[in-house]
Write a protein that binds this DNA or RNA. Structure first.
Lengths: 313, 313
DNA sequence: ACAACTTACGTTACCCGTAACGATT
DNA sequence: AATCGTTACGGGTAACGTAAGTTGT
């Protein structure tokens, strides 16, 4: 007999056109996929794929099976959703997040997931928003939490909340305080901004251009803590998430600059390929919506979140 | 995740109302069935059966699953029939046959099956037709080849051919030969007949009564060879399959009695429960129809069928 | 006492991942 | 050289059957 796993391997290999892509999709190795398909073929007694140089082509039998395999896997989904215990959810999720998410609520999410679904394993990676998007495209990630929107129609996205960024400077810097500033007032100061692979810089650069605002960049720094540190030391000004750094502001280490117009808020989304949506991913997104808070550092269990440090780790 | 095997175990347990019956149906042990169902329940996170004293009762979740399980197993059948290689058929079949089948074409069948479907294992048992029927009812057999018809609507049957029985006697016995005999002429002679669990005796006894014919039984013998032997030795007369024993008649060891009216022909059928019909069983029945011959001893490979012996083994 | 399900345990067999290889562009 | 599919091998786990235990009639 054949198994559901073999059918699944066959289905995704046929859909994605290669064993390699299929193995990424199913979180396993090419070897395993090839073996499952091979077993299915030996059950069928004939090849289901024509192994061409660069791609797989379905044989006639393969086409017949593909239709029924899809049907079967859909029925399978219905069964899982109908009688499957949520707590028996299992699987691996490669999750991409931006640094801000990592600093605020990622730990809360991990805690929550491992508590509710002990058999789900998250593999989080921190990277810039644009890099995350590229990795989603290459099927190297299953899900990403990042600013947007700027993805194409083949992605599913769910809003997670908004982040207000404000201009920050060292309290020692000689910018007139107590009055409202204009972008023009910022022009003389060097700006410490996000690296090019950041979605934030992508969005804000466009906005700056729109405003006719020219920014002088001295650094692009890929670490928020370091950026805050450099800003506090007076190396330049920077735009930083307001809520997360408000304790630092309260301690007088950083100073908000009251610049008008305000920087536009950054909208965070949970993003994944539509074809990747599974019960597991949907559940994960639901939990993410619950716990997403961009103000205080999270993690409910062990290290009860401290206040953000102005020093880099 | 769950597996098709678990679903199958659940389905048949629900249908047949017990793990025991299910284990017979699926050719495995209660232990294995209970475990598969248990795994399915732990996947569902709740019981699917209420274990009552004498029977299983479906829970609410169980009912929901049963519908989808049936659907899934039907789809599974379609897939198997569509792309499954016939030569990859596998499984165990408990096969009941009468002695005559065992003496004539059973060996041919086994040869043919093991040649075409090396992964199919036949477990033949020789017994009287009525016993075979009872064992079918108790799910102790999957399929039987026996005379009929006398089974109920819940059985599937396929004709396999007919057998002509004739009255036989020792050449030495003082029955007038050369003229046509009547049943009345047989009355004085003891009859060696089939045991009560034989379908043959069942059918013929009814016919004898219908004909107003009284037979004096001395022996009932459950072995055809021995019956022939005893008949040849003049212990009595008997009705024996004409074709199979014609070589013995040719050698002058037995003598046909030309009694009118002829004994009615016996129709053989392949019989199984309708709910047991699977691709495997259907195929097996097809092959049986091909090879069923009640005249010569069969078996194509090793012992090239010899002529029937008049001595018991 | 019997019939049914459950549990425990040792064995088996299968499935997977690593890694080396071959073929194609 | 890079990418993809295949093959070989070793390790781990899960599924099985035997058999003893338990529970109800």
């Amino acid at each position: 007999m054949y198994t559901l796993k073999q059918l699944e391997a066959f289905y995704w290999s046929a859909t994605l056109g290669s064993f390699n892509a299929s193995s990424n999709r199913l979180h396993t190795t090419q070897s395993a996929i090839a073996k499952r398909v091979g077993e299915l073929e030996s059950f069928a007694g004939m090849p289901l794929f024509e192994r061409q140089a660069r791609r797989l082509l379905l044989t006639q039998q393969g086409h017949k099976l593909l239709v029924m395999a899809r049907e079967m896997l859909e029925l399978n989904q219905r069964i899982v959703q109908s009688i499957g215990d949520p707590s028996s959810l299992e699987g691996v999720v490669r999750l991409g997040v931006t640094e801000l998410v990592g600093l605020t609520w990622l730990a809360t999410l991990i805690d929550e997931i491992s508590r509710r679904y002990p058999n789900v394993q998250l593999m989080p990676e921190i990277d810039g928003g644009l890099t995350l998007y590229e990795r989603l495209q290459r099927d190297e990630l299953d899900l990403a939490f990042m600013p947007g929107p700027f993805w194409s129609y083949e992605y599913d996205s769910t809003p997670l909340g908004s982040v207000r960024n404000v201009w920050m400077a060292s309290p020692d810097i000689d910018i007139e305080s107590g009055r409202e500033l204009t972008p023009h007032d910022l022009a003389p100061y060097p700006v410490i901004s996000q690296p090019p692979n950041s979605a934030l810089s992508h969005i804000y650069d466009a906005w700056f251009a729109e405003q006719g605002m020219s920014v002088k960049r001295v650094f692009t720094c890929n670490n928020l803590g370091v950026t805050a540190q450099l800003t506090a030391l007076g190396m330049g000004i920077s735009y930083l998430p307001d809520a997360y750094f408000s304790p630092v502001v309260a301690r007088g280490v950083l100073r908000r600059l009251d610049v008008k117009p305000d920087l536009p808020p950054i909208h965070y989304y949970s993003v994944c390929k539509k074809s990747f949506v599974t019960p597991l991913l949907s559940t994960l997104v639901d939990v993410a919506c619950e716990v997403a808070r961009f103000d205080i550092p999270g993690g409910t269990s062990r290290r009860q979140g401290g206040t953000p440090s102005e020093a880099s780790p």
